[in-house]
C-alpha cells in the first residue's frame, strides 16, 4: 500500500480506503451551464453522441459525472458554452456560498474562472461579480471561461488578494486560496509522485492574510466561503481558527447534500476552535472527486 499522506492517518477516517482511492483517476465531471442551455436539452445532445452522463446528486440537475468522456473540451457543446468540465467538489464551493440574485460578490483568486462562472449562473447573471486574480497571464483563461459561458455580470481585476482595496464591502466573498493541492493528487501511474513538503512552508501565512482581508471586505451579514483543495490542517482549520480568534466571525453550517467529514478541532499538539466542526472536509473515498476543505463564514452585525 502506498505511504501517501501518512501524516493524516489520524484525521482521515477509513484511511486505507482513502489511500486506495488515490490509485483511481479523478472521474470526469461536468457542470451544465444553465445560462445558455436547459439541462434536459444538453443531456439529450450528449446521449445522441453516445455519452451517458450520471447525475451527481438528485438535488442538482446540472451536475453530472461523464464516464468514458476523456476530453470534454473536445465537444462542440464545450465550444458553445453549454458545459464546463469542473470537479464536483469545485462546483460544491459555489453551491455552498449560494449567492443571491443582484448581490455583490468578490472572487479573490478567480482564475481559471469556473467558480466565478458558476456563481454567475446561480445569480442568474444579475448583480456584480469581481473576478480577481493577481497574475495577468491567468486573466486570459479567466476571461475566456467567463466569455465562453456567457457571463455578463463580471469584471476582472488584478489585485493581490491579501491587499484587495478596502473601499467597498461585498455581500459575498469567495476565497478559494492558493494551496498545496494535495486533494488533486491521484497515484494513477507508477511514476506519479507527490512531495508532501514541497513549497508548503509559506502557504499558511499567505492564506491567513487572504482570509483576514476577505472577511474585512464583507458587509454586515455578508458571507465568505474559504476553500482549499488540500487535506493539510495547517492550510485549513489553522487558517480559519486564526480568523475566529482575530475577528467577530461565525462559522455557518454547509449543507450541500454530499458526503463529508466535519472539520477537525485537534491536530498534533494544536487545539482549534470547537466551531470548526461546522467546516467540511471532502475525501475521495467518500465522494469520488478532488479532496476539498470548505468553511462558510458569516460576518455579524
Amino acid at each position: 500500500m502506498t505511504g501517501l499522506f501518512e501524516a493524516y492517518s489520524e484525521i482521515i477516517p477509513e484511511f486505507s480506503l482513502f489511500q486506495e482511492s488515490l490509485q483511481r483517476p479523478i472521474p470526469t465531471h461536468i457542470r451544465i451551464n444553465c445560462l445558455l442551455i436547459e439541462p434536459v436539452s444538453l443531456i439529450h445532445l450528449l446521449e445522441e453522441k453516445g455519452i451517458q452522463p450520471i447525475q451527481s446528486s438528485q438535488r442538482y440537475d446540472n451536475l453530472f459525472f461523464a464516464p468514458g468522456l476523456a476530453s470534454p473540451g473536445n465537444l462542440l457543446e464545450y465550444f458553445l458554452g453549454y458545459i464546463h468540465p469542473q470537479a464536483l467538489t469545485s462546483a460544491i464551493a459555489s453551491i455552498a456560498l449560494a449567492p443571491r440574485e443582484n448581490s455583490y460578490l468578490l472572487d479573490m483568486c478567480a482564475a481559471p474562472g469556473g467558480k466565478s462562472a458558476h456563481c454567475a449562473q446561480i445569480m442568474n447573471n444579475t448583480g456584480l461579480i469581481v473576478s480577481n486574480d493577481l497574475y495577468v497571464n491567468r486573466h486570459i483563461s479567466l476571461g475566456h471561461t467567463l466569455s465562453r459561458l456567457g457571463v455578463m455580470n463580471a469584471v476582472v481585476t488584478g489585485y493581490q488578494a491579501q491587499e484587495f482595496p478596502l473601499k467597498q464591502r461585498f455581500d459575498y466573498v469567495l476565497a478559494d486560496v492558493p494551496c498545496s493541492c494535495e486533494g488533486n493528487f491521484r497515484k494513477t501511474r507508477d511514476t506519479s509522485s507527490y512531495r508532501e513538503n514541497k513549497g508548503k512552508e509559506n502557504l499558511p501565512d499567505l492564506q491567513k492574510k487572504i482570509i483576514l482581508r476577505g472577511f474585512d471586505l464583507l458587509q454586515e451579514n455578508g458571507q465568505m466561503l474559504y476553500a482549499t483543495c488540500t487535506y493539510n490542517p495547517e492550510e485549513n482549520e489553522s487558517v480559519v481558527d486564526l480568523l475566529l480568534k482575530e475577528r467577530d466571525a461565525e462559522l455557518l453550517p454547509i449543507d450541500a447534500g454530499f458526503d463529508f467529514e466535519p472539520g477537525i478541532t485537534e491536530w498534533k499538539d494544536k487545539r482549534y476552535d470547537k466551531r470548526l466542526k461546522n467546516a467540511v472536509r471532502f475525501y475521495p473515498h467518500r465522494l469520488d472527486s478532488v479532496g476539498f476543505f470548505m468553511a462558510r463564514i458569516g460576518r455579524r452585525r
Partner: peptide, 22 residues
C-alpha cells in the same frame, strides 16, 4: 450590468475586463 446598483461602488477598481465583449 449597467443597471446594477453595485457599479458605482466598484467604479474605482482598476479593471482588466468588463462583462461580455459585444
Amino acid at each position: 450590468m449597467k443597471r446594477s446598483l453595485h457599479i458605482e461602488t466598484a467604479s474605482h477598481l482598476k479593471v482588466a475586463k468588463v462583462g461580455l465583449r459585444a
